[in-house]
Computed example of a mutant assay.
Amino acid sequence: MTIRERRERERAARRQLIIDTARKLAEDDGWAAVTTRRLADCIEYSQPVLYSHFTSMEAIVEAVAVQGFADLADDLHTACAGSETLDQRLGALATAYVEFGLSQPALYDAMFVQATDLAFGSAETPEQLRRAFDEMRSVIRESPGGIDPDADTEVFWAAVHGLVTLARSHRLRIESTGVHLTVLLERVIRLWVPHPDRGALNQWRDP
């Protein structure tokens, strides 16, 4: 390994350490408690070193968000991989999404609530965001009852995102999230999945 390669690897490791530490602090104490000074103290680097990787706290949040979309894409892919029928894949997709959002609130906030410059649905959209969307679209496009794969995916995404957001803010009964998810899936499956291919809805587990 050359000196340059070693330095690049060390720099990449420092950058990832900053992202991981910010993510952990946010999950423990909320984003309001995450500052560049606290991050510098936790990773035992000076603030100038931290700023050599990220120009602002917002840039750190954005990096956490991008990593979150990569994690979400992996979770959705894994959840749907073992499902044999379309209705099972739709159920696995929705359940995995809701579980992701409810189990990692600070990460979900970085992805959808905190201020970032991330572009959605444009040529500038990062690959990680595209991959998360494509994991949903790859299932939803199978539906013979859909209207348009992109629009159907966006509406499905809006629905599961709404369940996560309202449950987390206690605008919905969070203990009834499993019921809400089953209701949503029943309506979607009635519209999108031909009757012979429908399975039993009681297979969906509570998030």
Rank of each mutant, 00 (worst) to 15 (best):
E8L: 15
V49R: 05
L86N: 03
A151S: 13
A32S: 14
N202H: 13
A26P: 05
L129V: 15
Q114N: 07
S143K: 04
A96Q: 01
R11L: 06
A106M: 03
A73G: 15
R89G: 09
A22M: 02
G178V: 02
G145S: 10
M57P: 07
Q104F: 05
D148S: 12
R141L: 08
A70F: 02
E44V: 06
T85Q: 10
S122N: 05
A32P: 08
E124P: 03
M57L: 13
L25A: 03
G145M: 08
D87L: 04
Y108Q: 08
M111Y: 06
R38E: 07
T85H: 12
N202V: 03
T78F: 07
W157R: 14
Q114D: 03
R9Q: 13
P144D: 09
A94K: 09
R89L: 09
S169C: 04
V49E: 08
S56C: 07
D71Y: 04
T85S: 13
D87R: 03
A22D: 05
E8Q: 15
L191G: 14
N202K: 07
L17E: 07
F156L: 07
L185R: 06
W192D: 14
D41H: 10
R190L: 15
A159N: 12
H161W: 12
R23S: 12
D71G: 11
I18V: 12
E62P: 06
G145D: 09
F156E: 02
T177R: 00
